[in-house]
């Protein structure tokens, strides 16, 4: 049975079809192929969120996973993030949790915090 996907790697959102025999078509770049392959076996997502800080001028600072993580770990990751409190100034890109939930991905700041 043909499987249909919408690639989410970039805002183009190519409509990609995977035939029974595994032929992939509809992608405008090669990243679409990787996306669809992963999506069919173990779907992964980048997670973006915020974490708490002690700073009154910046009560929350935005973060992300620096690599896509398994979709089924997202809610656990969110739970871990809710325990974080940033207590000192940090630059954009700083790692605040290494290898979150053993996914191989780090949680990094996406903007500088009081720096």
């Amino acid at each position: 049975m043909k499987k249909k996907f919408i690639c989410i790697v970039c805002p183009r959102g190519c409509h990609i079809t995977v035939d029974d025999d595994g032929t992939i078509s509809g992608n405008k770049c090669i990243r679409g192929i990787d996306y669809v392959k992963t999506e069919m076996t173990s779907p992964k997502r980048i997670v973006t969120s915020t974490v708490k800080t002690i700073f009154k001028e910046l009560p929350r600072v935005s973060v992300k996973t620096d690599k896509p993580v398994p979709k089924n770990k997202i809610m656990e990751i969110m739970k871990e993030l809710s325990k974080v409190i940033i207590t000192e100034p940090m630059e954009r890109g700083s790692i605040i949790i290494e290898n979150i939930m053993n996914t191989g991905s780090n949680i990094v700041l996406t903007r500088s915090c009081m720096k």
Partner: peptide, 20 residues
């Protein structure tokens, strides 16, 4: 704070705050 910024200008995907 979500992704989707910079793919055309920087050829890389950023979050809004990073793009800013």
């Amino acid at each position: 704070i979500h992704n989707g910024f910079g793919l055309e200008v920087f050829k890389e995907e950023y979050t809004g705050p990073e793009y800013a």
